[in-house]
Design a binder for these strands. Structure first.
Lengths: 158, 158
DNA sequence: CTGAATCATTCGAGCTAAGAACGATATCCA
DNA sequence: TGGATATCGTTCTTAGCTCGAATGATTCAG
């Protein structure tokens, strides 16, 4: 029962409206976040898109997995995992290995090169974070990270 | 100076990595947020996409604006504003009015129908918020909303 | 041993959004 | 005043991303 939103902004009498909504703000902020991340990836000049990184992260989060399983975890079509993996394999970031016990399956594993690549992305991400979170106090930033992690866990994201 | 992130997850010794990054988490959460919002919009059966709503919100946030100005604020191409406006005008949610002082300009205004539509979206958004923020305490949720607003303000979002 | 199911892959289609080209209008400058 | 230039909205074409269906290889059930 706090009074957070009572008469906050006397200057412009804007209704809080949708902009006070989590889904909307998460959506819009999410697009600018991925836009910036995409540009940082472009600077690598490896032809990588956020989805490639998402695949690497999903792969690193759990045990080595088949492509179907990966598609399930990422919430994308299996055919997309194919093309992402093609590119990542060409870069030497992942390896396709036929499962000897079920030779239909391709088990993907993260190589050392792949792990190093993830680290580069991580460094780029942290740099972007510092720009993005500039107006936040350290406490606010920590609370934000914690809350986002809870949300991500709830929806099954890595 | 809390100890929030000390030894949280003993089960799997995962490196925090990119998943502890704001850009990455905002990006992934943003896509699921807009996915859910898109589905809620589909239920309206008005052919609306998140971008339509973004246009309405952008329009409602500032003064009545020309389409170019809107495109600038939204960070999209002017040609996209045309098609979005076409649809919204057909629904009676916005009005195109030629600026008498510069007859090249089409000044868009939000109609009463449009405002009601935004309210419907807002209600849908709040419902989604409750699902999404279920694992958060009220304090956490308030802190999250506050932090996200600061970020949105910094990058110039409505 | 044969038919059904599952995996990875390829191919084609749909949708989104951007970019170039165009007509109408406005502004600048001689 | 008048003509070149810039700007606004619109249309059309194009590129990119992602999905879904069809295919071939392999496995499983009976």
């Amino acid at each position: 029962m706090s009074d957070v939103n009572s008469e906050c902004r006397p200057t412009t009498d804007r209704m809080p409206g949708l902009t006070a909504t989590l889904v909307f703000t998460l959506g819009t902020l999410g697009t600018v976040a991925t836009d910036r991340f995409t540009r940082a990836l472009d600077a690598f000049d490896l032809g990588l898109k956020p989805k490639h990184v998402a695949l690497l992260v999903t792969l690193g989060a759990g045990a080595a997995a088949s492509q179907q399983e990966l598609a399930g975890r990422m919430g994308v079509a299996p055919s997309l995992v194919v093309s992402l993996t093609d590119h990542l394999e060409q870069l030497g970031a992942v390896q396709r290995v036929r499962d000897p016990q079920d030779r239909r399956r391709q088990v993907l594993t993260l190589t050392t090169v792949g792990r190093r690549l993830v680290e580069r992305c991580e460094a780029a991400g942290r740099a972007l974070d510092d720009e993005l979170a500039a107006p936040l106090t350290p406490d606010q930033r920590a609370a934000l990270a914690q809350a986002l992690r809870l949300l991500a866990d709830q929806v099954g994201l890595p």
